[in-house]
Nucleic acid binder design. Structure first.
Length: 816
RNA sequence: GCCGGGAUGGCGGAACUGGUAGACGCGGCGGACUCAAAAUCCGUUGGUGGAGACACUGUGAGGGUUCGAGUCCCUCUCCCGGCACCA
């Protein structure tokens, strides 16, 4: 009786072997090349979901494959442990966020271990622990010293009923999720990090990241949004004030027919004094949410302020409007409107009956029609006085020089990228290490007093941060003058923790410094894997922090991640599987029913990693069936008798054919795993080899030898994906417990040689037949054979080929 | 609204550099084994026509380039992700 496949026992045995042998614990003492394989660490939401299983399995497959190729592989795991869900759980269930978080971590760690991922658990990081966050507090104080952080007002979603700041996702249809109150925009003072100081470097370095997907680099380029333009001051009529604007289209200056300012702009605020209708409009502009998507999609509205500016070239009076789509936080909070040549300005002008003036003509002299929309191409200036006839660049240069000489304007490079606001009015985060003193202002907490510990035993109510009502936290002495002072109660954006954790894994226990020499050994990350949803924010902040760490002398690297794989989301019912949407599928039940290997195999086989994967319960069965078939196949092979020693010179044609497939599969799977990250096709290729071995019934000595080679290659090639069953099969094949240390199977190029090839024959590009030819046949031989094919004859008939296209070894196309 | 991506059988997907569309798997259908079922094994499976050989047709829609287009170009539709406080 054959031994049956029992996943629970097989997986338990393999995992305890790895644990006892400390297979995945690595250090810097190695003569092998290092390979740092990392996934974006999870938020401990309670249970693993399918998105986690997908990304961790991808990374584990890459890590295990690299090990087999001889690299010294580091694969760590940790917890992005601060964040809103812990506070929400606290509000709903009364559990303190710390307790909830630590319990989730313990549960999820067990789930990860059950899935058999090859992590060095000695390096586990938990960002809500003071040993971790003290170093980001420390880095913040270093940035403070260097002038890389500052405080300014910025806008938040304000819930006027709960008297609290809301996250964008807590605003539903413009109302607070708990109170139902209409959300308002409110400005409060917040801390910012000067990521814009690095804008140029962050942009240019993208050109030197060949290991990143183009889509991600394009998104980051557009996000940084470098532009060259002109900053220009308009004089306010009947006043000594000026109104400054930034424009990338100074060539359209003669087409300005109105100006638009933000509701918070001083000019608007001043104009509202004593004018109830303007005041009412400004009030209306404060309604609504802070999210940019909301601002961009809302109805464009405005109102004249009754103030004019003087056009700097024509001297005409130009009316100033206040408009709800102009944001005080961007640029100067004011724009010059050119409705003839800017689509948004055109729509606004059309709505309010403002004049639309053409000042740009088509370069080819064709007529420009402004009745259905703006003409936004670069063209030639018209109706522009002495500047008529200039092209975009000539006009730009002429006007810039003119206004620079006048002192009224200057050329400026502008970025769409804004400084990173890191203040959050929440409890469950890293305390911002600042003390406010009436005399000394904002003072960073001295290094000796770090970390500023977050009190963990608190009651969270949902109405503001509990820190504010904790005198033992707030009240302190000014580090400079010693007078009574108040501690900052805001905490960091949780993106701060995830902007440097990758480096800390190298030296998680360092207690004298944020990073030590071990980080230089392991960094940069060789392969970083995570969700495409992080393409901009997390990845850009991490690139910024890596440079800050470099500039304060902690690292010698510019970029944190050499190669990036952005895996698609696991969707259910067409949208992202996430805790907040409540549409998760629990992998635990599947692991219990089929085992970790089945779940891993299914995730890798169901879709290519970059693509979104629409979840379906079908298919898991198929993965399980394949593993059972594989198991039986090995058992049947072992029962068939002892193979002879493989003698490649004495093989017959079927034996050579199986051997060719074995080595073709080794080449393909190696390439699929390392270069293409195409795990689904790697699995498919091994399945094909398995099917071929099943059909191969030769039990002679050499027949069994060729089978043995195929089967051992299959077990080795599948081992990164389904390591437990392969560990057990490798044992049964007589290799002991050593699979985890085994090398990737060697490719025998000589096995790939073929002496006959199949050539596809087309007539006028349509498939009409196939011919078998000698491997060294040339086009004339192939053409002669092709013309002899009856079906090809039918279509060629008496006609003379006009053209023959031959793709050597593949295809012949006869054009008639 | 802006930026990025996607769409291929009943389903997940394959086709890597413009060269055989549908590999591999799921599901379906037919059969073997079984008292029966499950499991397993064998065969078959895009659509239409045909006994068959084979032909026509087919990769979201419409157009184009090419000997040849799922792949390249243009226009459009729908879906997904991001938009700075979800992580």
């Amino acid at each position: 009786m054959e031994e049956a496949y029992r996943p629970a026992a097989v997986e338990q045995a393999a995992q305890s072997h790895w644990a006892v042998a400390r297979s995945f614990e690595v250090d810097e003492q190695s003569d092998r090349q290092k390979f740092y394989c990392l996934t974006m660490f999870p938020y401990p939401s309670g249970r693993l979901h399918m998105g986690h299983v997908r990304v961790f399995t991808i990374s584990d497959v890459i890590a295990r494959h690299r090990r087999m190729q001889g690299y010294n592989v580091l694969q760590p795991m940790g917890w992005d442990a601060f964040g809103m869900p812990a506070e929400n759980a606290a509000i709903e269930r009364g559990v303190p966020p710390a307790k909830w978080t630590y319990e989730n971590i313990d549960y999820m760690r067990g789930q990860l271990q059950r899935l058999g991922y090859g992590y060095d658990w000695r390096r586990e990081l938990t960002t809500c622990r003071p040993e971790y966050y003290r170093w980001e507090q420390w880095l913040f104080t270093k940035m403070f010293e260097r002038g890389l952080v500052y405080r300014k007002n910025s806008v938040v979603n304000w819930d006027p009923v709960d008297q609290t700041v809301l996250a964008n996702e807590q605003v539903i249809d413009g109302r607070g999720w708990r109170s139902g109150a209409l959300v308002e925009r409110r400005e409060i003072p917040q801390w910012f990090m000067k990521i814009t100081d690095y804008a140029d470097e962050l942009l240019e370095a993208l050109d030197r990241l060949p290991g990143w997907p183009e889509a991600v680099k394009t998104m980051q380029r557009n996000w940084i949004g470098r532009s060259e333009g002109l900053e220009l001051a308009f004089d306010v009529a009947d006043s000594d004030q000026q109104l400054s604007v930034y424009t990338t289209r100074p060539d359209t200056l003669y087409g300005v027919t109105y100006m638009a300012v933000a509701a918070e702009h001083p000019l608007a605020v001043a104009a509202a004094a004593g004018k109830p209708d303007i005041e009412a409009f400004l009030q209306e502009c404060r309604q609504g949410q802070a999210a940019e998507a909301a601002m961009e999609t809302m109805e464009k509205k405005g109102m004249p302020l009754g103030v004019d500016v003087i056009h700097p070239l024509t001297g005409d009076r130009v009316p100033v409007w206040v408009a709800n789509f102009v944001l005080m936080g961007y640029g100067t909070g004011a724009v010059m409107a050119v409705p003839g040549h800017d689509q948004r300005d055109w729509e606004f002008a059309t709505r309010y009956g403002l004049p639309i003036r053409q000042v740009i003509g088509a370069s080819d002299g064709s007529t420009v029609d402004l009745s259905n929309g703006a003409y936004t191409e670069h063209g030639v200036l018209v109706n522009s006085g002495e500047h008529d006839g200039l092209d975009f660049q000539q006009a730009f240069d002429a006007l810039a020089a003119h206004f620079e000489a006048q002192g009224r304007g200057r050329r400026r490079v502008n970025f769409r990228l804004r400084d990173w606001g890191v203040s959050r009015q929440r409890y469950w985060g890293t305390p911002i290490p600042i003390i406010y003193c009436d005399d000394c202002g904002a003072v960073p907490v001295p290094e000796a007093d770090l970390p500023v510990r977050l009190p963990e035993d608190v009651a969270v109510t949902g109405a503001g941060s509990p820190l504010k009502s904790m005198p033992e936290f707030v009240d302190c002495a000014c580090p400079k003058c010693g007078k009574p002072a108040k501690r900052e109660t805001d905490t960091f954006d949780t993106f701060v923790e995830s902007s440097w954790y990758f480096a800390r894994y190298a030296c998680p226990d360092a207690d004298q410094a944020m990073l030590d020499a071990r980080a230089d050994y392991w960094m940069p990350v060789d392969q970083y894997t995570g969700g495409i949803e992080h393409a901009i924010l997390h990845l850009l902040y991490s690139r910024f922090f890596q440079r800050v760490m470099r500039d304060v002398g902690l690292s010698r690297h510019d970029e944190p991640f050499t190669n990036l794989l952005t895996q698609g989301m696991v969707l259910k019912d067409g949208s992202k599987m996430s805790k907040s949407r409540g549409n998760t599928v629990d992998p635990q039940a599947l692991v219990e029913e089929y085992g970790a290997d089945t779940v891993r195999l299914f995730m890798m086989f169901a879709a290519p990693p970059e693509q979104a994967l629409e979840w379906s319960d079908d298919g898991v069965q198929g993965a399980f069936r394949f593993l059972r078939r594989l198991w039986r196949q090995v058992m049947a092979h072992l029962a068939a008798g002892e193979p002879a020693k493989l003698d490649t010179d004495s093989l017959d044609e079927p034996q050579r054919a199986l051997r060719r497939l074995t080595h073709m599969t080794i080449a393909k799977v190696g390439d699929d795993l390392a270069r293409r990250h195409s795990f689904n096709t790697a699995v498919a290729a091994v399945m094909e080899l398995s099917n071929a071995v099943n059909r191969f019934e030769d039990t002679s000595g050499q027949g069994l030898a060729v089978q043995r080679e195929a089967i051992e290659a299959m077990v080795l090639m599948l081992s990164p994906i389904v390591p437990h069953i392969c560990h057990a099969l490798w044992q049964r094949l007589g290799h002991g417990d050593g699979l985890v240390e085994a090398a990737w199977p060697a490719l025998d190029e000589s096995a790939l040689a073929q002496d006959r090839l199949q050539i596809v024959v087309q007539v006028n590009g349509k498939l009409r037949g196939r011919v078998a030819v000698d491997a060294d046949a040339g086009q004339p031989d192939v053409l002669a054979l092709a013309l002899a094919e009856p079906n090809v004859q039918r279509f060629v008939a008496e006609q003379t080929p006009r053209k023959v296209i031959y793709v050597p070894g593949k295809l012949l196309n006869i054009v008639i």
